[in-house]
Computed example of a mutant assay.
Amino acid sequence: MDNKKASAGITFGCALAIAISWSAWHSIWWSILHGFLGWIYVIYYAIQYM
């Protein structure tokens, strides 16, 4: 059961990173890269731009 929660959190982090990246840069390549980074990019974006 814990593996499902962790997997859902990782998946959500990747989707959130892709959405933020697309809205900020409008580039599929940046979106792919930031999707791989996941929560790291989300936290970076929150600190840097908010």
Score class of each variant (00 low, 15 high):
7 S>N: 13
13 G>H: 10
21 S>H: 03
9 G>D: 10
38 G>A: 04
40 I>W: 07
7 S>Y: 04
19 A>Q: 00
14 C>Q: 10
9 G>I: 03
2 D>G: 10
12 F>R: 02
5 K>V: 13
45 Y>P: 06
15 A>K: 00
12 F>L: 14
23 S>L: 04
47 I>V: 06
23 S>W: 02
1 M>R: 07
39 W>Q: 04
27 S>R: 02
10 I>A: 14
11 T>N: 13
24 A>R: 08
43 I>C: 07
50 M>G: 13
32 I>P: 06
13 G>E: 03
41 Y>E: 12
21 S>Q: 01
22 W>T: 03
7 S>H: 05
26 H>N: 05
42 V>E: 05
31 S>L: 01
32 I>G: 07
2 D>M: 07
37 L>P: 13
7 S>W: 07
47 I>W: 09
3 N>R: 11
35 G>N: 13
44 Y>A: 08
50 M>E: 05
29 W>Q: 10
36 F>V: 05
25 W>P: 00
38 G>M: 11
42 V>M: 01
44 Y>Q: 15
46 A>T: 08
35 G>A: 02
44 Y>G: 07
10 I>N: 08
43 I>K: 05
15 A>Q: 04
21 S>V: 00
17 A>E: 06
3 N>G: 08
20 I>T: 02
11 T>S: 15
39 W>G: 06
36 F>Q: 08
17 A>T: 04
30 W>M: 09
14 C>G: 06
12 F>P: 03
38 G>V: 14
48 Q>H: 14
11 T>R: 08
14 C>D: 04
19 A>I: 01
1 M>K: 09
20 I>C: 03
21 S>P: 02
11 T>A: 14
4 K>E: 07
5 K>I: 14
23 S>T: 01
35 G>D: 13
31 S>W: 02
4 K>P: 12
46 A>W: 06
33 L>C: 08
46 A>I: 14
48 Q>D: 04
27 S>H: 01
16 L>I: 06
41 Y>P: 00
8 A>K: 10
32 I>Y: 05
30 W>H: 09
30 W>N: 13
35 G>V: 02
14 C>R: 06
38 G>H: 02
10 I>R: 09
36 F>T: 12
4 K>S: 13
5 K>P: 14
43 I>M: 07
37 L>S: 12
11 T>K: 11
49 Y>Q: 06
6 A>T: 09
11 T>M: 09
50 M>L: 11
22 W>M: 05
42 V>I: 01
26 H>Q: 05
28 I>R: 05
30 W>C: 10
32 I>T: 04
33 L>F: 10
44 Y>T: 14
15 A>D: 01
46 A>S: 01
30 W>K: 15
50 M>F: 10
11 T>P: 12
38 G>T: 05
26 H>M: 06
13 G>V: 05
18 I>N: 00
42 V>Y: 03
33 L>Y: 12
44 Y>I: 09
10 I>L: 14
30 W>Q: 07
23 S>M: 02
